[in-house]
């Protein structure tokens, strides 16, 4: 019994140490979940009338499933996660996403053609080469702020 506990603690400690470099300053330390964000990027906007789109990968190194429940960004009057689906007839649609569960030890990617951060009511244009702060809200109360680099209008991924 004790061995199992000890293993659990060891695992948690290893996870903690391994995550230190990627942990964001805004990480809420009041619980033992360990959420980090990798490869955030957005496309530059053409003016401010169209919604912007941003992408990233969320990693959950904690022991429990955590859900992404919302977004907040000063640059957007209304930020939320949307999902693009393509049905068997080849028709694409885009709808607001339900809460997205990230299983313990798992990752979930917001990437072109799937989930994306939809930034409606842009308060200022997304300018290539700049960055903007985006806050991810999780079911356990964690709020994680990431700086999102803005790539070109035609960017295909975090590498441009």
């Amino acid at each position: 019994m004790f061995k199992v506990f000890a293993k659990g603690f060891l695992g948690l400690a290893v996870a903690l140490v391994m995550n230190l470099p990627t942990m964001s300053a805004a990480q809420d330390a009041s619980n033992d979940t360990l959420i980090s964000v990798e490869n955030p990027w957005a496309r530059a906007s053409i003016g401010m009338s169209r919604p912007g789109g941003a992408y990233l990968t969320i990693r959950n190194d904690g022991k429990d499933t955590v859900s992404l429940v919302g977004l907040r960004a000063e640059i957007s009057g209304m930020a939320s996660v949307h999902e693009t689906r393509t049905n068997s007839d080849g028709v694409s649609s885009m709808t607001p996403a339900e809460d997205i569960a990230i299983p313990a030890g798992g990752t979930v990617a917001l990437e072109p053609g799937g989930y994306h951060a939809m930034l409606m009511q842009l308060q200022s244009p997304l300018v290539e080469g700049e960055t903007f702060p985006l806050t991810l809200l999780f079911s356990d109360g964690t709020e994680l702020e990431v700086n999102v680099p803005i790539l070109g209008v035609g960017a295909r991924g975090p590498e441009g």
Partner: peptide
Amino acid sequence: YCPDVCPT
């Protein structure tokens, strides 16, 4: 006006 599929 679509932020995902069309630019992609």
